[in-house]
Design a protein around this nucleic acid. Structure first.
Lengths: 167, 167
DNA sequence: CTCCTCGCTTGCGAATTGCAAGCCACCCTA
DNA sequence: TAGGGTGGCTTGCAATTCGCAAGCGAGGAG
């Protein structure tokens, strides 16, 4: 899947997709959030091939989402923990879960969440940090930012709107 | 990657990962959110191989996230639009973007978002629908829900906590 | 001394990928 | 009528990646 190509695109969605745009990577993160830490726990819970698990853990470590720590000497054994950057993906994982609960869970949600802060069962929503309102497609406008020559899609869109091809 | 296996797991994260756990699928969705609709627009913007683009569009249509519509007869031409379920993934895409902006965008965010409802530049946060507070790893408790025999990871966790193996 | 566990690595055949070329239906120009 | 261009794919091929299964090295248990 040649992940490095996504890292060089001037779009945070593309860059992030290159890191977590893989079912096994996301499920490893899910299990780490649930508190699993060891290779064999992950393997048994996920039912994943061992070479694939080793590969995904390596990638997540390389990407700085996970650290490998010695939890035992003689023999040396490691376990895996989320870094701050990895923990910061919690919202992404929750958003995926919430969507799956709405669209792929005819028997109801497999997991329920309680927000300890307010004490209620919670459904995660992606909201505006300014007004707290839910962010929907038709209420958000995209503008080019400083970190890219242009936002993705804009070249094609501009061409279509003006009818001319930009050099 | 045998996507069907993820659909049968009793976990919304796994099921959703089976649908969108792929960089190209996520980038196709991004472009559809940005307003691109046609095959060739997508191909040029993404720089993706044509067989892969055709395959991802087929998958997204099969998954009910995208519809293929005739926009012209003689010759028959189709374009691609998000369904309600597809549009509902907006939050996931925003969450991915926000994370990438925080961790993979040293030159600043490539795209800026304006929330038309409140008129401000916005940074998407994943929040509790009850209290509006941001949902973080350490402030959320996971419980088994009705849609699964057990939540993922719990078998391994229970075994580790009790020191016994459940039949 | 042999078996067992943990955390991988290796080998293999099958599936998937990127790239490039081809193709088909139609339109436009002349 | 011929010739070229466009849009939307399909096909062929080499290379990568996958799932599965076996192996392996370091130590602990019996």
């Amino acid at each position: 899947m040649d992940r490095e190509r996504f890292a060089s695109v001037a779009c945070s969605i593309a860059r992030t997709s290159g890191v977590v745009g893989d079912p096994w990577a996301l499920l490893v993160l899910r299990d780490l959030f649930l508190g699993l830490t060891r290779y064999d726990e992950l393997r048994r819970d996920l039912g994943v091939a061992t070479n694939v698990l080793a590969d995904r853990l390596d990638r997540l470590v390389d990407a700085g989402l996970v650290v490998r720590e010695v939890y035992q000497r003689a023999p040396v054994r490691h376990d895996y923990h989320l870094t701050d950057a990895g923990r910061d993906l919690y919202g992404v994982v929750l958003a995926l879960m919430a969507w799956g609960d709405r669209h792929l869970a005819p028997d109801g949600p497999p997991m329920l969440l309680v927000h300890d802060t307010c004490g209620h069962r919670t459904t995660p929503v992606v909201a505006c940090d300014r007004c707290g309102g839910e962010l929907t497609d038709d209420a958000v406008t995209v503008r080019p930012g400083p970190g890219g020559r242009h936002a993705p899609g804009t070249a094609v869109l501009a061409e279509r709107l003006t009818g001319s091809v930009a050099g």
